[in-house]
Design a protein around this nucleic acid. Structure first.
Length: 474
RNA sequence: GGCGGCGUAGCCAAGUGGAAAGGCAAGGGACUGCAAAUCCCUGAUUCACCGGUUCGAAUCCGGUCGCCGCCUCCA
């Protein structure tokens, strides 16, 4: 499949370096607060990519996502509230894991905390000093940008340009204003660790280099995150990792676009944000995922409740098909059914869906075009509804196969995976009983009473629909 | 100032050299006791604007306008 690589600024054929296991690192959150809904975009987008790799490409994936539990934001919050950094971090780390579950995200293979890898970071810094790529100044350690000739290759920047437009506060300790902090001398009361340079804490994302190398080796297949991390964050990671090892740090750099709010990037500092858990509570996981995946992952996406409502409506059409077929054919068969018991007409219908499955894959293979992939699913839904409107007898068993296909294609997207039936044993039987009674009344044209049954069931959340195949309920 | 991106029907949104996907909304029709669901039909001579290249451009090149991101923590 092809993926757009920020490093080369074009789409390239992607295959894992060993041909079967994708080594993938996605930048995780700093746990000083709950995630806002914009933070969630890369989480969903790259979870989808991972699942597509696993389910449709046949590759294993080692998926690593860090948790940054020591940095300025945490320390500032600690100073504001008086609560220890470790307690704040623990609370929001839990919040983050809860969010992953709510979003239907597959658990990362590893979720290392930065503070678990301080010795490794110290080793990294030592190595950089030995290579002449870092220097000490009054207890701080800085990376010497001028020592890495390829600095700027990811973000397309040149050192000279950066120098001219630099808004970076000049520090008298730095040789060059662009040099960035690898190790920071701790002030009283701040979290600190012993090091050869005195007590301090890690600086500019030495953690990502150390953590990724620990779990994935020197060369990652994919390093991913939001596109606001391209510079300086990811540029600085390359400088550290490649400066030290001389090996390619990541073969593919993938970046998701920003979530916008009324034309501006959603961010905590602007205050134009909504907490992810609140949005999920209001709209549900599938709607949120559909909302994101109905726009190409690299483009900016406007957040709006109207957009989320539209996503909800779009999903409803597909979910209605699934629910109605489930009700007609029975939930138990549907969970595992492939429609193999159908007749020739039904088999012909299922065969006619295969080109759409191929189209779905072609779209996903093209830089994960989930928008086109969803269009393919919508076409399957249309075809299935058309078939459903005319087919009779055993041909209808093929509907099971169509639903299975929709579920299969929905898997990477995190859509249509609910398997639990709306029915529950005796409850199902009682509803069937009411339906039978109501249909007897309808035959006698006692519509006032039959409509009353339908209305009263509706108030209980049970919808009755009279079809050519009989009454179904959802 | 440097680097990068966006502008496609009423709305959302794919497509990036060879007949403008998909969804929503709107109108008409079918089915139905009613309802719900579904099906059929109706949409851009046109892709911000102006030039150019080409047999052919929404797609390539040049320019203009508007909007946004990064260059400071940031998904």
């Amino acid at each position: 499949m092809k993926l757009y690589n920020t490093l080369t600024r074009d789409q390239q054929e992607f295959v894992p370096q060993d041909g079967k296991t994708v080594r993938m690192y996605v930048c995780g959150p700093t746990v000083y607060d709950h995630l806002h809904i914009g933070n969630v975009r890369p989480v969903i987008v790259f979870d989808t990519l991972r699942k597509y790799f696993q389910r449709f490409q046949g590759w294993d994936v080692i998926y690593v996502q860090n948790v940054t539990d020591v940095d300025d934001k945490l320390i500032n919050r600690s100073i504001e509230t008086g609560e220890p950094v470790s307690e704040i971090a623990a609370r929001y780390t839990q919040s983050y894991f809860n969010l992953l579950t709510e979003l239907g995200v597959e658990t990362p293979s590893h979720s290392p905390r930065a503070t678990q890898f301080i010795p490794g970071m110290i080793d990294l810094i030592k190595g950089l000093i030995d290579k002449g790529l870092a220097y000490e100044a009054d207890g701080d350690i800085y990376y010497r940008v001028s020592g890495f000739s390829e600095y700027g290759k990811l973000s397309g920047r040149k050192l000279d340009d950066l120098r001219v437009g630099a808004r970076i506060a000049a520090s008298e300790k730095k040789e060059n204003p662009l040099d960035f902090t690898l190790w920071k001398k701790s002030k009283p009361g701040e979290p600190k660790w012993d090091s050869p340079w005195g007590e301090g804490r890690p600086g500019w994302h030495t953690e990502c280099v150390v953590l990724s190398r620990h779990y994935l080796g020197a060369t990652l297949d994919i390093h991913a995150g939001g596109n606001d991390l391209i510079f300086p964050h990811h540029e600085n990671e390359i400088a550290q990792a490649e400066g030290l090892t001389g090996k390619t740090f990541a073969r593919f750099w993938l970046h998701s676009g920003m979530l916008m709010f009324h034309g501006q990037k959603m961010s905590k500092s602007l205050g134009n944000f909504a907490y992810a858990h609140d949005v999920i509570e209001e709209f549900g996981t599938e709607t949120v995922r559909y909302f994101y995946l109905s726009r190409h992952y690299r483009k900016p996406l406007d957040y709006s409740t109207e957009g989320l409502e539209a996503a909800r409506v779009a999903i409803t059409r597909i979910q209605t098909l699934i629910d109605e077929v489930t009700s007609e054919l029975g939930a138990s068969e549907l969970a595992t059914g492939t429609g193999s018991d159908t007749n020739e007409q039904g088999r012909g219908f299922l065969a006619s869906l295969q080109p759409l499955r191929e189209r779905y894959m072609a779209e996903m293979d093209s830089d994960m075009n989930t928008v086109g992939a969803i269009a393919a699913i919508q076409d399957i839904v249309s075809e299935t509804n058309r078939f459903r409107a005319s087919a009779t007898g055993d041909a209808r068993l093929a509907l099971q196969g169509a639903i299975s296909l929709i579920r299969e294609l929905g898997y990477p997207l995190g859509l249509f995976q609910k398997t639990e039936s709306t029915s529950k044993g005796i409850e199902d039987d009682l509803i069937r009983l009411l339906i039978d009674l109501r249909n007897e009344l309808r035959e006698k044209k006692e519509f006032a009473l039959s409509d009353s049954i339908r209305d009263r069931l509706a108030k209980l959340g049970i919808t009755l629909k009279d079809t050519a195949q009989g009454t179904i309920w959802t």
